[in-house]
Amino acid sequence: MGEDIESKRGVLRRTGSYLRSRPTSQKVGAGAAAALLASAPFGGLSGPAADGPGTIVAGKALMVGPYKVVIDKVVELPDLKPAVSPEPSQRVVVLDSHVTLTGDRPEYAVTLTQNVKIQGGGVKVVDGPRLYFVEDATQMREFNPGLTYRLAITFTTSGPWQGDEVTVKSRLVEFREEDSATLDPNAWVARDEIQAQGELPIVRRS
């Protein structure tokens, strides 16, 4: 037993003198590696944090909570009758899109409409977005899963859009199995964080 302790002490002594004899650069490197290893339980070895919002591109799928949205093009019109009839001074900006509710349960449209917006053009959005099924111009308020609709996502603006591009943004919408804020389990919850944004060209039609 006594010999055991003595031999362990010898090993430690030899290790200590070996480390002391190393150059400073190696000591610093070893110290950094040890610190990184020690921080592993707190995320020290995890990958880098996601940097900034994703990019919205025409024709590419974008997830807004449970909704898969593909914006095909952005169009500005004086109106979109019979669905949208704004004042003569106003305009309608339409995200011509295909929208699919993924997952296995229904959702109401607000989960999508509250989390997509447009910016720029030197105008204000005075109404919208609203969702209209292109095939019959009826407003979509409810979605069942597994069906894809070509939708006009409409924004009524205070006047004509200035410039050739529209900034489209979507907020991060997360599924929470438990939400301490609302006590509602299994809910889609919007975060105050931009998940994706992009500059899309605007097409003007009269």
């Binding site: 349960r105 229904p106 009826t138 407003q139 979509m140 409810e142 069942n144």
Partner: peptide, 17 residues
């Protein structure tokens, strides 16, 4: 007013018609 199918999935009524 909603539907339940053979796999116990829910389907909600539409206000479009």
């Amino acid at each position: 007013f909603f539907l339940v199918d053979a796999n116990d999935r829910r389907w909600i009524a539409s206000s479009r018609g």
